[in-house]
Write a protein that binds this DNA or RNA. Structure first.
Lengths: 140, 140
DNA sequence: ATGTAAATAGGATTAATTACGATTTTCATA
DNA sequence: TATGAAAATCGTAATTAATCCTATTTACAT
């Protein structure tokens, strides 16, 4: 998983300014192998920055996703975010707990297994996610 | 793809009442091999039922998804719906045009190719979608 | 130290979706 | 065919996630 330092480095390289709030958003995401909602991130960041505007959280999250610092998915009509898995670009997918957002990596990517893609579509992306309940959520 | 008659039959079997509006929602979805937004369905149904409440559309769509009459996905934070592909339960996935929702079937399901699923997750579902631009949208 | 462009605060706004009481309709049964 | 109860719909209010906007503040290159 990407480290906080690596993420801050990417920001710097791209000409974004350093702010404690940005670091804290990244730090919160780095603390867990889980997808978090914007709301969850907001709640946690308020411990350190009580007056934080949610516009700031949403704007930064969206920047981070563009820069590849965060990965995004969607569950129950709500965006969820986690620190990008790897800096080396090894492409893979996730098993996601639908209760708590906890994830587990899957090494296979189904795209390599598709023999024939239709000719009349220009492929731009794909999504493969396995959903389930994690051990912790099962026992509670 | 499921027919309008088959869909109405499912409703009847489950004890839901017949209404012209329900049939029309299904008919609209049956007309195209595409994912439609609730708004698109609403616009089209107003030709026949101008005073239709969107509560009715949303409520019925959601019932249809529960009953397996419609398939649901999400694009750009908006739910999209299409008539379920098959009545015989042959499981497959789609290539989806992100511009217009048009789809193309993929025969492979990646789940059969996953050799080792983690033990600490109880799998409840999965999603595999390939995104792209269809021929029609490319040339416009 | 300072000027400027970027970032943030605080709140208004948008858009999709759900909720809900009042009314209407379906359909089983008389 | 009439009728009554449950289900469906209407019309609108409420909710929720997310974006937009302007004034103010901050980071940081010089």
């Amino acid at each position: 998983m990407m480290t906080v330092e690596e993420a801050l480095q990417i920001l710097k390289e791209k000409g974004y300014k350093y702010t404690g709030k940005r670091e804290e958003i990244i730090r919160i995401c780095a603390e867990e192998k889980r997808y978090l909602t914007a709301k969850e991130i907001m709640e946690r960041i308020k411990e350190l920055y009580p007056g934080l505007s949610f516009d700031t959280v949403y704007r930064n999250i969206s920047t981070f996703v563009e820069l590849g610092i965060l990965e995004q998915t969607e569950l129950d009509g709500e965006g969820r975010f986690r620190l990008a898995c790897s800096t080396d670009g090894h492409h893979h997918h996730h098993l996601i707990c639908t209760e708590c957002g906890r994830t587990s990596s899957l090494s296979a990517c189904p795209m390599s297994l598709l023999s024939a893609l239709p000719e009349d579509f220009q492929v731009t992306g794909h999504k493969f996610e396995v959903y389930g309940t994690c051990k912790e959520c099962m026992s509670s």
